[in-house]
Nucleic acid binder design. Sequence first.
DNA 1: ATCCATGATGAATATTTATTCAAATTGGAC
DNA 2: GTCCAATTTGAATAAATATTCATCATGGAT
Lengths: 161, 161
Amino acid sequence: MDIKKERHIAIRRAVKNHSISSQEELKNILEKDGFTFAQATLSRDIKELKIVKYPDVNGDYIYTFHGENNYSSELNSSADENEISSRATSSLEFSGGLAILKTRPGYAMGIASDIDSLASEEILGTIAGDDTILLIPREGISRKAVIDVLQNIILNLKYEI
Amino acid sequence: MDIKKERHIAIRRAVKNHSISSQEELKNILEKDGFTFAQATLSRDIKELKIVKYPDVNGDYIYTFHGENNYSSELNSSADENEISSRATSSLEFSGGLAILKTRPGYAMGIASDIDSLASEEILGTIAGDDTILLIPREGISRKAVIDVLQNIILNLKYEI
DNA sequence: ATCCATGATGAATATTTATTCAAATTGGAC
DNA sequence: GTCCAATTTGAATAAATATTCATCATGGAT
């Protein structure tokens, strides 16, 4: 698998699970995971993943996803809701300007709702059945941009362009 | 009125209405509005206001509020929904660990919903009637923190500690 | 009014982060 | 396979941002 893609996944995971306040800190974590790269690469990765340095309630900076609630609660820090989504989705395919995301039965509504709130910059709207979500990207949003943002929400998303 | 408070309001307004990609750019805008200050001050202001430098869809950086959708649509760029909230709210008061936000009749539900989504880091939950919202801050969140975050959502909020 | 504590600020600086530029790698098309 | 264009990357550097430290202002308390 693509090394960059792996690194991106590792970055998302690290950002989610740690309280990271600088790229250097993040770099150290990833290096312990066996990744090797320069700070420049990390800066670019963070930009692509739309990760943000957020001033948290305690007066510290913390890297996080845009719009993500990051009060570190013990409740959901181990049970990672994105991991659930990961198991719950199966594939993403495109047709014309539209995309179809398949999910496990019963999951479509919930995941569509997550997408509505977390990817509203790229996705104009969603229509969910039981195991299928129709995604309507905004004008000018590329397939790649759709994939990128969904990968932010759903770890290990499988897709076909 | 407090010069810092005025500047904060001007910053929020500028961030909302312009596509600002650096503190220097923001500083220039504010200076045209008659404010004078050093970059250090702006950095601190931005931290206090929890404004974030966000990598947008076009591959640029843009200063924005955490979690705010900033696809610049002509639809709502002039009709500013926070301005509506500003006219729609009247006062914020505290009692014990709780806060009461008064609104114009009929607005409580809508505003409470905005607060739920935009201030969930500080506010555990809200209960809205017709013109009154009960805010339940999370443990350890100070009154000042509550005021700060609500000021981010509601311009010109009036309050009593 | 005077004192004290707290907050606000700027200049300089440290730190952090983004970009440039050149090199290396990758992924087709043939 | 070779070639070419795209993408990825690192080292160095530029640019941007945060903090330090000293100073000044502000707002009580007495």
